[in-house]
Design a binder for these strands. Structure first.
Lengths: 141, 141
DNA sequence: ATTACGAATGAGAATGATTAGCATTAGCAT
DNA sequence: ATGCTAATGCTAATCATTCTCATTCGTAAT
């Protein structure tokens, strides 16, 4: 299933900006990108898309299930390619590096916690804020 | 330990706006309040504080450890009184009602997940988004 | 009590991320 | 090739939050 098929099945026309944004995520150099990140990367590669369009496209892709949106600590949100595998995130407070993880026990206990209190779990967000080991930390002062 | 002592020990002068804000939280009618909420409630009770002051005071209280700040889904952040007991939150997507919970297993698995990946856990945020049972849901369409 | 000085406040401007409005342009089915 | 609608790209608007700065308040020493 290629980019074009992805768009089609989401009921979205295959336009230049959309293809550009999608392939940026699929190229996979960086998994987590903010709207601003995407905008700058496109400009840098000579592709001339408006910032507003980037925001619109990202949100459409999220609705369509192609991307997932996250709100790490701070103001701006980031998007990542939806590859079907739910996972949570560990974010380094120093360098911002993000690592993904999945813990079945945590998932299950969440469902339980909700159920015990009369809630029907719909969704959740779990972010661990931590510090990398120095060897991996990309912090540049 | 009363309000005044709280402020003193945080190195904050005992001023009218600060006492007002603090007692709002301590009165406990609603546990989770946004800056806007606090501002409106104070105005409503005839206390004339500026919105900027509310923001400042809330942040100072957070730094001082009197309040804890949360970012539920959506844009604005909410504060609650810090009573020393860490807990996570379940938020109803319909009515916005918030219920608190604590699960030792989840806490422990988080620490483990971080450690296994070479992170030193500093903090975390876990929000469960769900739907109340109809009997409790305060949703008004 | 009075003074004096720095901290705190209030009002409004400024910021930063995100969205809305609208005229122009580009997909795509005919 | 044509036409219609959806998509784009500006720019202006919004919303929460922070900053600026002149004025006022709290407090510790007189």
């Amino acid at each position: 299933m290629n980019e074009l098929t992805h768009l089609k099945s989401a009921g979205l026309k295959s336009t230049l900006p959309r293809l550009k944004v999608l392939s940026l995520f699929e190229s996979g150099s960086e998994r987590h990108l903010s709207a601003e990140d995407v905008y700058k990367k496109l400009l840098a590669s000579g592709d001339d898309v408006g910032l507003a369009t980037v925001y619109r496209v990202l949100n459409q892709f999220e609705q369509a299930g192609l991307l997932v949106k996250h709100h790490f600590e701070g103001d701006k949100s980031v998007f990542e390619l939806n590859q079907g595998d739910h996972h949570d995130h560990i974010v380094c407070l120093q360098c911002g590096r993000v690592e993904e993880f999945f813990d079945a026990t945590i998932e299950q206990r969440q469902k339980k916690a909700a159920a015990e209190r009369g809630f029907e779990l719909h969704d959740h967000s779990l972010y661990i804020y931590a510090n990398c080991v120095k060897s991996k930390c990309q912090y540049r002062s």
